[in-house]
Design a protein around this nucleic acid. Structure first.
Lengths: 110, 110
DNA sequence: TGAAAGGTCAACCGTTTGGTTGAATAAGGG
DNA sequence: CCCTTATTCAACCAAACGGTTGACCTTTCA
């Protein structure tokens, strides 16, 4: 079954999970490497990744003993479409997005 | 303090709350009228509205004994900007949005 | 004045969430 | 073969969530 708006929005509601998505924007990563910048346990990160995968926001592929995590940006499409119905916001504003990235990274990894 | 991405996404993660927002897209409504289509208690709806207000997604104004609820679509802007950074989705697709509305209304009020 | 309407508050309840720890499983490397 | 690395599993915990009910406050209006 394809992920619902419920699971997508719920996945995005956690700052750790949003930070993970932001990291994956740079490159695919192994679970251990995803966990490295955070102060919580590896098991906790593993759970977050499971939630992100259930929401369709990432894909996980096991190669050898390493499980690679890859961003799946299309999963955001349905949620984005839903939201845009309310606001008619100006089309993609990457400057504002960069500002958010800096703010979030500053908050979470301080 | 302005609402965080946390509170906005968490507010959007509940189908009842999304249905309420959709209803308010039509027109401003009193709390009792918001509650009418749902099968849960008025108190529960009142809590949902408090959460939506805390997220900045609606504004509530009391006139007489009636509390009016009004959509505040700008609150979606920050979240929308955040999401767009991932996908570069095509600009506003209202057809897709209409389809989602029908699906959600069909699910929640069946 | 007093009853009805509109909402919220407070206490409670079961379930989910986000975290922990320690053990278990699986795959390389020497 | 054994040790280490990579990751998940299982049990547990406190806090938050979504819901209920009943009491409560305020406004309207006959």
């Amino acid at each position: 079954m394809e992920p619902s708006l419920d699971t997508v929005f719920a996945a995005l509601a956690d700052p750790t999970r949003r930070a993970i998505l932001t990291m994956l924007l740079e490159d695919d990563m192994a679970v251990t490497d995803v966990a490295e910048p955070f102060e919580i346990s590896l098991a906790a990160i593993s759970k977050h990744l499971t939630i992100l995968a259930a929401a369709g926001l990432i894909a996980q592929e096991k190669r050898g003993r390493v499980k690679w995590c890859k961003l799946e940006p299309d999963a955001l499409k349905a949620a984005s479409v839903w939201m845009q119905g309310f606001g008619q916001f100006e089309p993609v504003n990457l400057d504002a997005f960069e500002a958010f990235l800096e703010q979030e990274l500053g908050e979470d990894h301080a």
